[in-house]
């Protein structure tokens, strides 16, 4: 297989543009930029959650070739403040066994799975949302400030998990303001401005 896993070209929408980027199999790419520049909107466009124009393709297959839910199952967006549709955490987790296996990796107690979502702290919800996405086995994960509410030790656990995911071939596109974290996880980096993305040295 040749060519990038995810290819974005001429993408325009609410965040401006045109934006272009590539993400290879097993690669972790970090996007940085000033607050309010539209990094979250960019990720939402790549997941096809907001109206946009431009070429998006996964493994050379353009998004128009598949129904949108199919695209989003493979190119999965995980927002900074995830939403929850059921009362209990466990109702969001399928398959449940996969979620149980990941809980200790992120320093979460097994009992939290049966807790009401509202009882979790912001940091716990953030980690649960990451687990919720990983167990659905997307090809690409779009992560918006995944560790913004975590202490350093827990953030490092999450980064170890990222390394494992990329080793298995998943592509990670991460938006973060945390320079130290970006330095630790990035294989490549982009800087975002109103007019586009440009690659910057590590």
């Amino acid at each position: 297989m040749s060519g990038p896993l995810l290819a974005v070209n001429g993408l325009r929408g609410l965040a401006g543009g045109p934006f272009a980027l590539t993400l290879a199999r097993g690669e972790c790419v970090v996007i940085s930029g000033a607050s309010g520049i539209g990094k979250s909107l960019l990720l939402r466009m790549i997941a096809d959650l907001d109206p946009n124009e431009g070429q998006l393709s996964l493994d050379g297959v353009s998004r128009e070739a598949m129904p949108a839910p199919h695209w989003r199952r493979q190119v999965m967006y995980n927002p900074a403040e995830p939403g929850w549709w059921a009362e209990r955490v466990s109702a969001h987790m399928a398959p449940r066994e996969a979620a149980l296996a990941l809980l200790p990796r992120l320093g979460l107690a097994e009992a939290l799975l049966e807790a009401p979502v509202t009882q979790l702290s912001t940091g716990e919800r953030q980690r649960m949302a990451l687990i919720r996405a990983i167990i659905r086995q997307p090809r690409v994960l779009l992560l918006d400030e995944p560790a913004s509410a975590l202490d350093e030790a827990t953030a490092l656990k999450m980064e170890a998990l990222f390394a494992e995911l990329t080793a298995s071939g998943m592509g990670l596109l991460v938006v973060t303001h945390n320079e130290a974290q970006a330095g630790r996880i990035a294989h490549r980096r982009y800087e975002m401005s109103n007019t586009g993305l440009c690659e910057r040295p590590l």
Partner: peptide, 22 residues
């Protein structure tokens, strides 16, 4: 009111009828 929870389901790859079922 519950845009976030509906979009959470869409982002995980559910269709509109599942996401808007509740």
């Amino acid at each position: 009111r519950e845009r976030a929870s509906i979009e959470a389901r869409l982002a995980l790859g559910e269709g509109r009828f599942v996401a808007l079922h509740a």
